[in-house]
């Protein structure tokens, strides 16, 4: 997909042999200005802030502290607890989203009565704003009048309603369920698109050779999907690490610190405790983690050869 290197001799209005950097940049100017001004400048400014002690509660006390914010964070128990919660939340939600999304895609790739209805409905959770997603689950899991309690109590599974969101053990799983609900459609769409490119002949040949459905999935479908799955894995990791909306609505990081992920800790440090220096350092740690993970994924998974399709 080389953009530049397709020589088309006769199209002189596009001046194929001749580069037109001036025209290129002229047309990119508005986009580049917006992105430079509102991404590059904030990133640099954020780095600058993260090297300073800057708390809006103590005006006039803006001073350079070097890497102090970072060393304080890495030495604090708060950070490692949040890191642990982040890992639990991310691994749980990514594993479930990918599994359910792939299953849904495999299902939609088959022919059965009612497939078109499921296809039409499938996109809904993707379109629902995350805040609304959080609010819906908050109401479903409400401690007294919620639907989940109503059903479980009337079926006799629970004797009394359960306060899902204020219980240490259930708050994080609830967040994971809400997150999974929101993101399964995206995974299903991408995997389904990849599934539809699997050549039918491969399955035919394997069937004739006596491969059962699991062997066919393991040796044909899965390798064929691995490219799409890697991309979904990367996007879902980024999504999981930045999850904020549903935590704001559902748990506010609690009870205790049981759902305080790094993104939430960054928000609270900055906008509740108004510690912009430390908050910026948290943001940098989060961004670098995201970047490192993406690189690791691509390095480790890409080079396995299975991905080279």
């Amino acid at each position: 997909m080389a953009t530049a290197a397709t020589p088309q001799p006769k199209r002189n209005w596009r001046a194929p042999r001749e580069e037109q950097p001036f025209l290129f940049f002229l047309m990119n100017t508005p986009a580049a200005l917006i992105l430079l001004g509102l991404v590059l400048y904030p990133i640099v400014y954020s780095l600058y802030l993260s090297l300073h002690s800057y708390n809006l509660r103590q005006p006039g006390r803006f001073r350079f502290v070097g890497l102090d914010n970072y060393t304080n964070i890495l030495g604090s128990e708060q950070f490692w607890t949040a890191a642990q919660v982040t890992v639990l939340f991310s691994v749980g939600s990514i594993a479930l989203t990918l599994t359910l999304g792939t299953l849904l895609a495999l299902l939609l790739n088959e022919k059965f009565p009612g497939r078109s209805i499921l296809r039409a409905v499938m996109l809904i959770p993707w379109a629902i704003p995350p805040v609304v997603n959080g609010l819906i689950w908050q109401w479903i899991l409400e401690g007294r009048y919620g639907l989940a309690n109503g059903v479980l109590v009337s079926l006799g599974i629970f004797d009394t309603p359960h306060a899902w969101l204020s219980d240490y053990t259930t708050a994080l799983p609830v967040l994971i369920v809400a997150q999974v609900w929101n993101h399964v459609p995206f995974v299903a769409i991408v995997v389904l698109a990849a599934l539809q490119t699997v050549p039918e002949e491969l399955h035919e040949a394997a069937r004739i050779d006596g491969a059962n459905v699991f062997q066919r999935f393991r040796h044909i479908t899965f390798p064929w999907l691995s490219h799409a799955l890697l991309l979904v894995l990367i996007t879902q990791t980024m999504v999981a690490l930045r999850t904020f909306d549903i935590i704001y609505v559902l748990t506010g990081g609690g009870p205790g610190k049981s759902t305080t992920v790094l993104a939430w800790l960054t928000y609270v440090t900055t906008f509740n405790f108004l510690d912009f220096g430390r908050g910026s350092a948290y943001a940098y740690i989060l961004a670098l983690t995201t970047l490192a993970l993406s690189i690791v994924y691509i390095r480790v998974l890409w080079k396995r050869g299975e991905l080279a399709r």
Binding site: I43, R242, A283, T290, S294
Partner: peptide, 20 residues
């Protein structure tokens, strides 16, 4: 480079952007 900006966590941009 354009696409790489999508990798940044929004929480990283919201802190400096708020001050700006």
């Amino acid at each position: 480079i354009y696409l790489a900006t999508r990798m940044l966590p929004p929480i990283m941009l919201v802190v400096p952007m708020f001050l700006i």
